[in-house]
Design a protein around this nucleic acid. Structure first.
Lengths: 356, 356
DNA sequence: TTGACTTCCGAAACCGGTTTCGGCAGGCTT
DNA sequence: AAGCCTGCCGAAACCGGTTTCGGAAGTCAA
């Protein structure tokens, strides 16, 4: 019995029909008698028919698979974020019979090569990328290829494209507002390399937040770090060595914020009471850090679902410029945001000279 | 120019050959003149030939994709583990031209259905599953289907199969040994549901560790919890409410250990000095917990690579019984393992009666 | 009864590769 | 010079579906 998957031919033979007729019956063509359609459906169910994917794909020209290009350089700490995205993506795709593929790349060049390969060999029928650069070569490439795609994040591009993003600009503006409300006037920003669009917009939001709250912009309070806890730690050491260290630090991601917390603790201070820290992402493990991390939470489970739906919209013929969605982050206050210390004007380590 | 992918036919036309000849030239058949083979290769490179995947798959009957079945019920905290595995898997598969697909399932029934579908429709050519049950229906199913597969973890089965695992039994035995060396005699175990093979073997290792160290086995010190921080927290509350609470707790995973730490802190105690805690997995975020978590680390980056290689071994005809690998975990000591407190014999909360 | 019109299915081309088979041309032997 | 062997390529079947086209039956009206 169980000798490989059952083909159309098997059903046709079983019923005394031709494969063409069986195929049309299963695909709802109107030129098939109701009675034979029922017989075909019944036989398919009974025999356990499994349509060969390669054959369908070859014949129709579409492949019901979307590729998710893994952001390179993802620290293990940022993975929960991606895993939740993948879950939402995968489950929603599945509802329309699509599957999800993941691809790890080693460089920008490799990334372009993979996109070209995945699309042109017909391995996938659509692509999702995350964390775009301000000028991201992948976007014009996919546009040229004619491959349906959704970008998780925004980017500059000549032609409009489909994207899903959370408003980091607004979030960091709000975070600055929250901290000024707590009395902070000396707020630092630990960011990541500015070729990433998200890094730039969060920095811009921080700067705008300073402006609307009447604070002056001190370049020393801006540090650019790797997207990792180690990066955040290095950057924070720089900030703490300043003649006049910040009383609050905004971190571009929760991963970076972990390093910020570590550096503060290492300096003998306690995050929150001594120096406020706010991260971004709202990752769950923030409740287990020392102390629990205040963060700007973004709707993560939602992201994967929506991106999958956007893919289907594109496939159904929607104009990319109509397939764009901007969500908002909101503050989840745990233990690292606190009012400024009253004794804060005097700084022990302000005797040190500014060396640069 | 850029009008869709270049097919064999295009090359054949360009060179005045037939597709069959071009195909054989590219696949190294001996009946092709060296000169024409060179011409074909050159033309393929020049025109940017992209073999259609569906056509190849249909013709050869193999699909160069492996599916990774996502363990259901993965808390967001355990995701770093999976992400690292996927990375190793994906990168190693890519070296031989294979791609990686991920599938999220909603139930055991759905899982079996997905495996059947993925294999019988030819969407994938091999499968990897994680975290098997002691008696896992997926294994006999894949054996019946004839689908090459590797199990990440061990399981009971009639016929031998390929697996990669880390010795949890030995690890928990060693952990108990480490704690007794620190003077602990009252060691608890927070485990997960015993239908999972890994849960059972880690529990067995714990029990064996007690035995070889001459400790008696107290059933009250064994708690079974969900694989999550919340589960670990609930279980630990039970332990702390005991007339004679443990002086050390072994957690079945780092995720669970996070909850253990939280419960201990909530009770006004500090993990390490007051109660030792050892987790399992060695996840990096353990350095950021309060306090940093001691854990049994397993070689994670290695796992993905090896599993991919094992897939290829299977594909190359290896006998599944020869494709099995057992790795060891080793203790990474951070701050939650400490000598037992000398004042420990007297317990403040031991006045409470045992209620169950 | 004949013509037009449906209804319904078979036949066949096609998607883009892989692989088997057969035969032409040239060089070799005897 | 006939026969044979080898090197090399074209022709065609095949994988398992999808889709177009044409025609055989049946229906109905004139």
């Amino acid at each position: 019995m169980a000798k490989g998957p059952v083909s159309l031919k098997a059903i046709a033979a079983h019923l005394g029909l031709t494969v063409g007729t069986v195929s049309r019956a299963m695909n709802g063509y109107p030129d098939i008698a109701k009675s034979t359609r029922d017989r075909v459906m019944e036989a398919a169910r009974e025999l356990g028919y499994r349509p060969n994917n390669a054959a369908r794909s070859l014949s129709t020209g579409v492949t019901e698979v979307v590729a998710y290009i893994m952001p390179e350089q993802t620290s293990s700490l940022s993975e929960p974020f991606i895993a939740e995205l993948l879950k939402g993506l995968g489950e929603t795709l599945r509802k329309r019979g699509w599957d999800l593929m993941v691809t790890h790349t080693t460089s920008v060049q490799d990334e372009l090569e993979q996109i070209d390969r995945l699309w042109n060999t017909g391995v996938v029928g659509a692509i999702v990328i995350s964390r775009p650069l301000k000028k991201d070569p992948r976007i014009p490439l996919m546009q040229k290829l004619g491959c349906p795609f959704v970008v998780h994040g925004r980017s500059e591009a000549d032609a409009p494209f489909a994207w899903y993003d959370v408003d980091g600009y607004e979030a960091f503006m709000a975070a600055v507002g929250h901290l000024t409300g707590l009395g902070h006037r000396h707020i630092a920003f630990v960011g990541s390399p500015l070729q990433y669009e998200f890094a730039q917009s969060r920095l811009d939001g921080y700067l705008q937040g300073l402006k609307v709250n009447g604070l002056t912009h001190d370049p020393d309070l801006i540090q650019i770090a790797d997207i990792s806890d180690a990066g955040g730690e290095r950057a924070t050491r720089q900030l703490l060595d300043l003649p006049k260290p910040p009383t609050a630090i905004l971190a571009v991601t929760d991963t970076v914020a972990l390093g910020v917390l570590a550096a503060i603790r290492t300096a003998g201070l306690t995050p929150g009471p001594d120096i406020s820290v706010i991260g971004y992402d709202g990752l769950h493990f923030g409740v287990h850090t020392n102390p629990p991390l205040t963060s700007m939470e973004q709707p993560r489970a939602h992201a994967g679902r929506r991106i999958a739906e956007m893919i289907f919209n594109l496939l159904d013929g929607a104009d990319p410029k109509d397939v764009q969605e901007l969500q908002r982050a909101h503050l989840v206050s745990r233990s690292t945001d606190a009012p400024i210390k009253s004794t804060n004007t005097k700084q022990d380590n302000s005797v040190r000279e500014k060396t640069q």
